[in-house]
């Protein structure tokens, strides 16, 4: 006997992600899902952003890693509430893991929650967590062929942060090619060229973040 099913394999995650989103919206909390390959500079971006914005935006951080609580310790030192999720073996965060951290935050007192996903350009793209925006980071040391190799991540992201531009003189990477190929995949992508090391370009990122927090408050 044939049974017609037609069900989304990720329906369970989608359901939880929607429930998470409702809770975030009720609290006027902007939630960002930050994704990149390992070592692109997600955690230093958070450290920089906390230093620059913590007096005007009340934020919390969720750190996703396969193992260790190093990242949560790093950002907690900056004086913001931070929760570490260790996925064990899973290569991505999902809605359920995010929901499990809710007890550790007082969302009413927060305006921005940044979720640093597990370093990986593939799997996190498939799993919604209830975020407002997916933000991806690519560092110039990873090479300018990444949009062509990982198109889904570029297609679903709202913002692309191109990090480590201070290293451009030392690597064979064309930032123009990254931008051109990314825009072919996602014409609406907002792109910032930044260096978390020197601080170059970060003010534009902070302004974008400020505007989004403001919009979510309304």
């Amino acid at each position: 006997m044939k049974i017609t099913v037609v069900r989304d394999i990720l329906e369970a995650n989608e359901r939880i992600a929607r429930q998470n989103r409702e809770i975030f919206d009720e609290n006027h909390l902007l939630v960002i899902n930050l994704m990149s390959a390992p070592g692109s500079g997600k955690t230093i971006l958070l450290e920089r952003s906390i230093d620059a914005l913590k007096n005007e935006i009340r934020m919390g951080i969720i750190e996703g890693d396969i193992q260790s609580s190093r990242d949560a310790e790093r950002v907690a030192r900056k004086g913001v509430p931070a929760v570490q999720i260790n996925t064990g073996s899973a290569c991505h965060l999902d809605g359920n893991m995010i929901r499990d951290t809710f007890k550790d935050f007082d969302f009413r007192s927060l305006q921005l929650l940044v979720v640093e996903n597990v370093g990986n350009l593939v799997c996190p793209a498939e799993f919604n967590i209830g975020e407002d925006y997916k933000i991806m980071m690519l560092s110039v040391t990873e090479g300018d062929d990444k949009p062509a190799k990982y198109p889904l991540m570029f297609r679903i992201s709202k913002v692309l942060l191109i990090n480590k531009i201070d290293l451009l003189p030392y690597v064979d990477c064309s930032i123009e090619r990254i931008e051109e190929e990314s825009k072919k995949i996602n014409p609406d992508l907002t792109i910032f060229r930044i260096s978390c090391k020197t601080g170059e370009g970060l003010n534009d990122w902070y302004s974008w973040l400020r505007d989004q927090v403001k919009n979510k408050k309304k």
Binding site: K2, I3, T4, V5, V6, R7, D8, I9, L10, E126, P147, A148, P151, R155, K184, I185, N186, P187
Partner: peptide, 26 residues
Amino acid sequence: YSFLCPFCGGMKVDTISGQELSVVDI
């Protein structure tokens, strides 16, 4: 993975299919 219209060069295109992950029947 170049999301450009081959007919008019338009850059606004909607995805109709290609992102499925579903159990169709058993």
